[in-house]
Design a protein around this nucleic acid. Structure first.
Lengths: 156, 156
DNA sequence: TATTGTTATACTCTATAACTATA
DNA sequence: TATAGTTATAGAGTATAACAATA
């Protein structure tokens, strides 16, 4: 009757409470994302920046030639949402927009000194979050996890 | 000037285009979740069920004694959102609600024959999605990935 | 008093289409 | 014509608080 379990050849290593649901990729990806979001959100909260805002600053600082659309793709959000996000970053005094000379349709978004300082403080916090989040894994396992996710995400 | 890169001791194994952003945990978790959602959504679309609806049926079928709240936790959604989800599943004729005798605050949500048939067809599709999604990895690497995610998620 | 399911509300995010200005 | 940024809008999801029934 519980045929979905029979299809799964794993011996259900941990917690048989839900009969296999918690070992499905969908469950694992959803919950790992949810938990990491909660962790970083709480850790960054004292310096007044959200995980998404930090990620946006991080992208923008690294590559000045990225268009808003390319940054949106890196953040995994829509370009229309990106407009509001940059509006917000600009209103907080963390970035400035100006048209790109060689293609005036595009914007160059650069960090202000305030934005750069906040990014650096945030980066230290995010580094700690990454370590804390992967604390259950050995250094080798953590590296393998990142490489495996990278390989899967890089597949188009 | 690009000091955030200097903080990262990895030699940026793939695609230096974004200077490290795409190897952050936040990026990897977000995009892996996003892509898997798109894959399963498209694959399940022909039989008229969403990934979340399938996941809900899967939870409910495996453990009849789970309360709506416990299923909501497994799905990673709020209990208030779960009400609307079960409403929808019930309206489609896939599940039925009835009060649990020993604790009449709780509902027992059982699958109808229609719901069970749909779950089984969906499960075969999801199995294929999991294989396809991890195709870039060897069987051992895929198993290690699942175990690593499981270990990280299981940490409270 | 605490919990389950429920409803209501406001807020955020997503999806889509259209508009403008540039190319 | 095609693309980048922008705006508008509808729909979905999230967060929060409250309430009734039950424990």
């Amino acid at each position: 009757m519980i045929s979905a379990v029979a299809l799964n050849d794993q011996p259900t290593p941990r917690s048989g409470r839900d009969g296999g649901t918690s070992h499905r990729l969908g469950y694992l990806f959803k919950h790992v994302h949810l938990r990491y979001e909660q962790l970083t959100s709480a850790a960054l909260e004292p310096i007044g920046i959200s995980p998404r805002e930090w990620a946006a600053l991080n992208c923008l600082d690294e590559q000045h030639s990225l268009s808003q659309r390319e940054v949106a793709d890196l953040l995994g959000i829509d370009r229309t949402r990106m407009v509001a996000l940059v509006d917000e970053l600009e209103a907080k005094g963390w970035v400035k927009r100006r048209p790109q000379p060689d293609d005036r349709r595009k914007n160059i978004v650069t960090l202000t000194n305030t934005g750069r300082g906040l990014l650096q403080r945030g980066s230290r916090i995010v580094d700690e979050c990454e370590q804390e989040f992967l604390a259950a894994l050995s250094a080798v396992e953590a590296e393998q996890l990142k490489n495996a996710l990278d390989a899967v995400v890089a597949t188009e």
